[in-house]
């Protein structure tokens, strides 16, 4: 007798601070109930680095600031039925997208890197070089929200979103009852 297939969930942190993943842990002991209903596939929580099979739900933290983020995001889109953008960074670019504000420069990216590694006032960078190890992915001209690159099915707002909203959204999705967020859950505090 085969057990009913458990829905599979994958997660990843792109250009985020890992705060959204910490917020997933904020669902506390409800994690046990959740683990009873789903199987985690590729995720920092399982330390599985690549998809073992197609997943039902993919959760993305962070937007895309480099080419590897883009590659990973597209991989998630291809391997997940429902893609969730979790948190402001994934939805809007968030804090990393502050560099998009360098606009009145002919080479905003160079200006950003030079300020970060060479000319910034509080720097200690003995080499006075911009890091350029071949293993470093190329960074993008600006930080993109996930929805600029792939279709996103659900956006869970917040920085970081509360454990409650993450849990209730996942449960609603698993029950096939997710219908968007109640107005009072979308607010500025």
């Amino acid at each position: 007798m085969t057990e009913a297939r458990k829905p599979r969930v994958a997660t990843v942190s792109l250009a985020g601070c890992f705060g959204c993943h910490m917020a997933v842990l904020d669902i506390d002991e409800r994690m046990i109930a959740l683990m009873g209903r789903v199987e985690f596939d590729r995720s920092p929580l399982t330390d599985i680095k690549t998809f073992t099979q197609r997943c039902d739900i993919g959760i993305i933290e962070g937007g895309c600031c480099n080419e590897e983020n883009v590659h990973t995001l597209i991989d998630f889109r291809k391997n997940c039925d429902v893609l969730i953008a979790l948190g402001q960074c994934a939805i809007m670019g968030g804090l990393p997208a502050m560099r998009n504000a360098i606009m009145h420069s002919r080479e905003p990216l160079r200006e950003c890197l030079e300020e970060a590694y060479i000319s910034g006032p509080y720097l200690r960078n003995a080499t006075r070089l911009i890091p350029n190890d071949p293993v470093l992915p190329l960074i993008l001209d600006k930080v993109y929200p996930c929805s600029d690159i792939v279709d996103i099915d659900v956006q869970i707002p917040g920085c970081a979103p509360s454990g409650d909203i993450i849990f209730s959204t996942l449960v609603a999705l698993l029950d096939g009852k997710f219908k968007g967020f109640a107005r009072e859950t979308l607010r500025f505090d």
Binding site: E67, E68, R77, N132, L136, P137, L138, D141, D148
Partner: peptide
């Protein structure tokens, strides 16, 4: 599900010039 309007080549061309190398991806 992947947007045809996002152009990876133009998004990385600035960094490619600065790093003076190709994209391995």
């Amino acid at each position: 599900g992947v947007k045809a309007t996002f152009d990876i080549q133009s998004a990385i061309s600035g960094a490619r010039d600065i790093a003076k190398r190709r994209s391995y991806i």
